[in-house]
Every structure is written in structure tokens, then in C-alpha cells.
Simulated assay, not measured.
Amino acid sequence: MLSGSAYLGAAVAEIAGCFAFWAWLRLDRSAWWLVPGMMALALFAYLLTLIESSAAGRAYAAYGGVYIATSILWLWVVEGHRPARWDISGAAVCLLGAGIVLFAPRGP
């Protein structure tokens, strides 16, 4: 359960941090948006260290699916754009792939 919470928290932190840069550069917001944005990106990196995995690369690969699904939720909740069924289908495929990467049996 800790991994699921860490993945979700990391995804929200990364998206929020990147969105701060997006807001500054694309939405003409103040450069002050970068301060919480950089803090969010630091939190993102920290949360990924909490993932229970024997290899960082595997944890990061599985995180990719969570990131994509959370990005689709961000699109809907924060930006107010309803996802298309293809957005949802693609996110579901990515979550399936993340589950395979994270939970597949490993040899000795």
C-alpha cells in the first residue's frame, strides 16, 4: 500500500511541479510560480525513493503508468478538459503495463 500512495503522491507532485513551469512559460504567470513548482519536483523525487523495489529502474518504469493515468485525471480535474475515451483507454493500458513491470514474478 505504501508503494501505491508513494506513486500517487509522486505523480501529483511531478505534475504540479511541471505545471508550474507550464503556467509561467505558457500561461504568462509570475516567475514566483517556480518556487512551489521546484519544491513539488523535489517532493516527487523523494517520494519515488519510498517505492519498495529492488531496482530503481523498475520502480521508475512502473511509475510511468501511474504518471500517465494521473495526468489524465489532472487534465480533467485541474484543467477542466474532459478526457476522451481514448485518453482513458490509453491510461488503462499503461496501468496494466505498470502492474506487469512491478508485480511480475522474478527469478532468483
Rank of each mutant, 00 (worst) to 15 (best):
Ser53Tyr: 15
His81Glu: 15
Ala16Phe: 06
Gly65Leu: 06
Trp76Asp: 03
Glu52Cys: 10
His81Ser: 14
Ala84Asn: 03
Arg29Glu: 09
Cys18Glu: 13
Ala6His: 06
Pro36Arg: 11
Leu50Ile: 09
His81Thr: 10
Ala40Gly: 11
Arg58His: 09
Pro36His: 05
Arg26Met: 15
Arg58Pro: 02
Leu34Gln: 04
Ser30Tyr: 12
Pro108Asn: 13
Ala13Gly: 06
Ala91Ser: 08
Pro36Tyr: 13
Ala61Thr: 03
Ala40Ser: 14
Ile100Glu: 07
Ser89Leu: 15
Met1Ile: 07
Ile15Glu: 00
Tyr67Ser: 13
Asp28Ile: 08
Ala40Trp: 09
Ser53Glu: 14
Ser5Asp: 15
Glu79His: 12
Asp28His: 08
Ala16Met: 09
Glu14Val: 00
Ser71Gly: 11
Trp24Asp: 08
Arg29Ala: 11
Leu73Cys: 05
Ala42Gln: 06
Ala92His: 08
Met1Tyr: 11
Ile88Lys: 08
Ile51Asp: 00
Leu102Met: 10
Trp86Pro: 07
Ile100Asn: 06
Asp28Leu: 09
Leu73Asn: 10
Tyr7Arg: 00
Gly4Thr: 08
Ser5His: 13
Ala45Thr: 14
Ser5Val: 15
Ile72Cys: 09
Thr49Trp: 09
Val78Asn: 11
Ala59Arg: 04
Met38His: 13
Tyr7Trp: 11
Pro83Tyr: 07
Ala55Phe: 14
Arg106Thr: 05
Phe103Asn: 10
Tyr67Gly: 06
Tyr7Lys: 04
Arg82Lys: 10
Phe19Ala: 01
Ala59Cys: 08
Gly64Cys: 11
Ala59Ser: 02
Arg106Lys: 03
Ile15Phe: 03
Ser3Leu: 10
Tyr60Ser: 03
Leu73Ile: 10
Ala56Gly: 14
Ala31Trp: 06
Gly9Phe: 01
Ala91Leu: 04
Gly97Asn: 13
Ala40Met: 01
Ser89Asp: 15
Ser3Glu: 12
Gly57Lys: 05
Ala10Leu: 03
Ile88Pro: 05
Arg106Leu: 07
Leu27Pro: 11
Tyr67Glu: 04
